[in-house]
Each structure stands twice: as structure tokens, then as C-alpha cells.
């Protein structure tokens, strides 16, 4: 039963990814802009252009190109970047950890900030505290992540320069890392000096990405908590002698979290989408920043590789959310 459900999910994932591959492949070839024209210096002959075109396989029909690319992808060969002249898979995996660390840090921040605000707002429902939380989350939500990025750069990069506004890590530092998960590895190696330097670079983009999501969590979770707090089993817990905070944490939170969890799953994919611009803003060396370069350079294989990896991430996030949902809801587990 469980295995069957898992296999169905796996098949759905494969179909989704294939769909994404087709769409991105077609769209970037239909869109104007010629990578070959951008690679050659002005005055190149038609023969030069044709030769280069043939070298990258761009002289074949779009259908042929697609299946050549797809058979490569299945074998783990995503082709060669036109602008960087390196293996696409290597490039992507080199940059992906930076983006994952940024996105996950932002997600944790959003859950921590939004969750705390929701619990506080639910506990102090009907008071000025709740009103303050509503106003703050309304503000956080109505400003998009890249604008938050600019605000933060002005505040904490320029006016009160406590954080670094550019890059992932100070360039003069000697990095002992063997993986690209710098933050994670610096903690494991107990090199907290490096952790701090990484955080000083990461905090502002992470906060920029986290604030809108934190606001969504605060509003939705607070609403769900308030609904649950009127239910009979919560009243019974109060009669047992539990404080309002205990009641919220022990009785209400888990049941109220389900709708929020679903939404956070969807919103997390938006957050990852947001890394593209925010990474650019902070010159953070992640996948999103590379995606913008790839698009500017019409680097077709690299765009395809990056988009496919993003799509894979989204699909995996959805799978994780579904599994967590089942874990939190005992009625689903037995169903």
C-alpha cells in the first residue's frame, strides 16, 4: 500500500520533470537571442558561425537536439556550458550547495520568526500585541524579497555597516573546506570564526528571503491556532490546569500546523525562486546568480541544467511536505 503510493509519486515526479525539460528546452530556443552570435567577435564569417553551430549541435532540428540532450541527461551528461566551457553538471553542483544553504537558512528563519509571532499573537489574542503582529506581518508581506534586500543593504550595509553586503565569504580567508556546503562544514569542523564570516554574508539575503514567508506563516498559523483554541479538547486542557502557553504548544500547535505546512511547502518553492534575484543583489555565489548570467549569455545547456535542478528541488520539496503531513496527521497514516 505504502510502496504503491511511493511508486506512484515517483512516476508523477518523472513525468513532471520531463514536462519541465520539454518546456524549458523549447522556450529558450524560441526566445530571441543567439548564443553563437554572442560568442564570436564582430566580423566572423558565415563559415565560422556554421562551424561553431555544428560544434554545439545547434544546426540540427529542435526535436533532434532535444533527444540528444535528453539521452545525455539520462546518462548524467548535461552537456557543456557555452559561455563557461565547462561541464554543466559540475558547474551546477558547485553552486547548488550555496543556494541550498541560503534557502534553508531563510526557511528556518521564516519558521522561527513567523511561528513565534503566531504563537505570541494567538496567546495574546484580542490585545494590542496581536494588532502589532498583524501590522508587522502586513508590512513584511507587502514588500517583496528583493526590495527587502535593498532596504537591508541600506540599513545594515551602508548606514550601520555590521554585515557584509557582497559575496558568500570574505575573499582573503583561507578555506579548508572539501565540500561546497561551507556553512554546514564550518560548523562540523568547529571553525566558528568561518561560520561567523559566512553568516555575516548570508544573514541579510536570508532575512530578505525570509520576511515575506515569515509574515505568511505568522498570519496563517495564528488564524489556525485561534480556531483550534476554541475547540473542546483545548478547553478540557485548560480545565486540567495547563497554562495558555502550554495549551498552545501541547494541544493546539500540531493540529493547527497542518494548513500552514501545506502553504509553507508551496511558498518555499517561491522562496527558492526568489534566490535568483536576491543572490544577484548580494553578489552571492549561488545557483540563482549563475542562472542570471546563463540567461544573459544565452547559455542554453547551462539554463537547461539549472532549471532542471530547480524543478527537481521543487518536486522533492513537495514530496517532503506530503510525508510530513502524513507524519503529523495520524488519521492519514492509517488511511
Amino acid at each position: 500500500m505504502l510502496l504503491q503510493r511511493f511508486l506512484i509519486r515517483l512516476l508523477t515526479m518523472a513525468i513532471t520533470l520531463f514536462g519541465v525539460a520539454v518546456v524549458v528546452f523549447v522556450v529558450i530556443r524560441v526566445a530571441p537571442g543567439d548564443p553563437i552570435a554572442m560568442m564570436l567577435p564582430p566580423g566572423a564569417t558565415d563559415a565560422d558561425i556554421a562551424r561553431l553551430r555544428a560544434l554545439y549541435g545547434l544546426d540540427k532540428t529542435i526535436v533532434q537536439q532535444f533527444f540528444i540532450w535528453l539521452s545525455g541527461v539520462i546518462r548524467g551528461d548535461f552537456g557543456t556550458s557555452i559561455s563557461l566551457r565547462q561541464d554543466v553538471l559540475g558547474l551546477v553542483f558547485n553552486r547548488l550547495p550555496a543556494t541550498l544553504e541560503l534557502a534553508i537558512t531563510a526557511l528556518l528563519m521564516a519558521v522561527a520568526i513567523g511561528g513565534t509571532a503566531a504563537i505570541l499573537g494567538a496567546r495574546e489574542r484580542g490585545t494590542a500585541v496581536e494588532a502589532g503582529i498583524d501590522i508587522a506581518s502586513g508590512t513584511a508581506l507587502s514588500i517583496p524579497d528583493f526590495l527587502w534586500g535593498l532596504v537591508l543593504i541600506l540599513l545594515f550595509g551602508v548606514l550601520i555597516p555590521v554585515f557584509d553586503i557582497s559575496g558568500r565569504v570574505s575573499p582573503q580567508l583561507d578555506l579548508p573546506f572539501v565540500t561546497q556546503f561551507y556553512l554546514f562544514e564550518s560548523i562540523l569542523r568547529l571553525r566558528f570564526d568561518l561560520t561567523w564570516d559566512l553568516l555575516k554574508h548570508m544573514l541579510m539575503p536570508a532575512v530578505a528571503l525570509a520576511l515575506p514567508l515569515a509574515a505568511i506563516i505568522a498570519q496563517l498559523l495564528k488564524q489556525s491556532l485561534k480556531e483550534v483554541l476554541d475547540l473542546d479538547y483545548v478547553v478540557l486542557a485548560r480545565v486540567k490546569g495547563f497554562s495558555e502557553t502550554q495549551v498552545i504548544l501541547r494541544e493546539a500547535l500540531k493540529n493547527a500546523a497542518l494548513p500552514t505546512l501545506t502553504l509553507v511547502g508551496v511558498q518555499f518553492t517561491f522562496l527558492i525562486g526568489g534566490t535568483v534575484i536576491v543572490e544577484r543583489l548580494f553578489s552571492y555565489e549561488g545557483l540563482g546568480n549563475m542562472a542570471i548570467d546563463a540567461v544573459i549569455n544565452r547559455d542554453l545547456p547551462l539554463i537547461q541544467g539549472i532549471v532542471l535542478v530547480f524543478a527537481l528541488l521543487f518536486v522533492l520539496i513537495n514530496l517532503t511536505v506530503d510525508m510530513m503531513y502524513a507524519l503529523l496527521n495520524p488519521r492519514l497514516r492509517h488511511g
Binding site: 475547540l231 479538547y233 478540557l236 494541544e251 493540529n255 488519521r331
Partner: peptide
């Protein structure tokens, strides 16, 4: 010192505990 026997046993128990 007190306890409550609630009206509706279907809603008086936490579904996730």
C-alpha cells in the same frame, strides 16, 4: 480539585495525540 466531563466526546479528545 475539579474535572470536566464534556458534552461531546468526539471533539473533547485531541485528534493528534
Amino acid at each position: 480539585r475539579t474535572a470536566l466531563i464534556p458534552q461531546d466526546p468526539l471533539t473533547a479528545l485531541n485528534p493528534s495525540r
